[in-house]
């Protein structure tokens, strides 16, 4: 630990809302307000303190940011008005880009699956999303997961909430090229904002 400003500066430059981290006054209200409090490695209060203490690797490889459910309790209660939820997501994003985010962290895996699914056709293909999520731990486990959920699945099919035909191609946006151009532009703008060359 250095208690130098290096990592704090890195966060301020690269993380969405990162310039707020120095304003934390360590009251712990965020930690006390978080409904997931006991289930993650470090509370926001600790994450902010670790950033100031220069614990770079520990922060970026923490699972904490991935556990946030965006309930916004911490933002509402923070007496210093820190946008804590946004900072946590910003940190997650930054850690992911650097390849330091925890590899098997389920939220992260699901988020990645979701994004890949979405970008492919411009629409979320719920059937494929569900199946790729079920089968993430291999074929046998996938069958087990599917069987465990079969009643709900059949019910949804009966109620026409899921169309089995979507498994084959599925429908997408009419102007898929245009959508991909939008996504690429958004990434470019964000990278420029954070001074990065590529994500």
């Amino acid at each position: 630990m250095s208690y130098r400003n290096d990592f704090l500066k890195e966060v301020e430059e690269n993380v969405e809302e990162g310039e707020w981290v120095k304003m934390c006054m360590q009251c712990g209200v965020c930690a006390g307000s978080c409904p997931f409090g006991p289930h993650w490695e470090h509370s926001p209060q600790k994450i902010f303190m670790m950033i100031r203490a220069g614990e770079r690797i520990q922060v970026l490889s923490s699972d904490s940011m991935w556990m946030c459910t965006s309930c916004y309790n911490c933002i509402v209660r923070c007496p210093r008005k820190l946008p804590i939820t946004h900072i946590m997501h910003g940190l997650a994003n930054y850690a992911h880009r650097l390849g330091l985010a925890p590899k098997g962290q389920p939220t992260r895996v699901f988020a990645k699956t979701f994004w890949d699914n979405l970008v492919k056709t411009g629409r979320v293909n719920e059937l494929k999303l569900t199946l790729s999520h079920y089968f993430r731990d291999g074929f046998i486990q996938g069958i087990r997961n599917a069987l465990a959920m079969k009643d709900i699945g059949l019910g949804m099919m009966k109620a026409r909430r899921i169309n089995p035909m979507e498994l084959f191609g599925g429908h997408g946006l009419q102007d898929l090229e245009g959508f991909h151009a939008i996504v690429a532009k958004a990434r470019e703008i964000e990278d420029r904002k954070k001074g990065l060359k590529n994500g």
């Binding site: 208690y3 120095k22 304003m23 006054m25 360590q26 303190m49 100031r52």
Partner: peptide, 24 residues
């Protein structure tokens, strides 16, 4: 325990903005 009574709280915040690091 950081004790900044009165308007000291504003002064404290200003120091944080200037990049002074506070460690408990």
């Amino acid at each position: 325990d950081l004790r900044t009574p009165g308007m000291g709280e504003d002064f404290y915040r200003s120091a944080q903005e200037k990049g002074v690091i506070f460690t408990k």
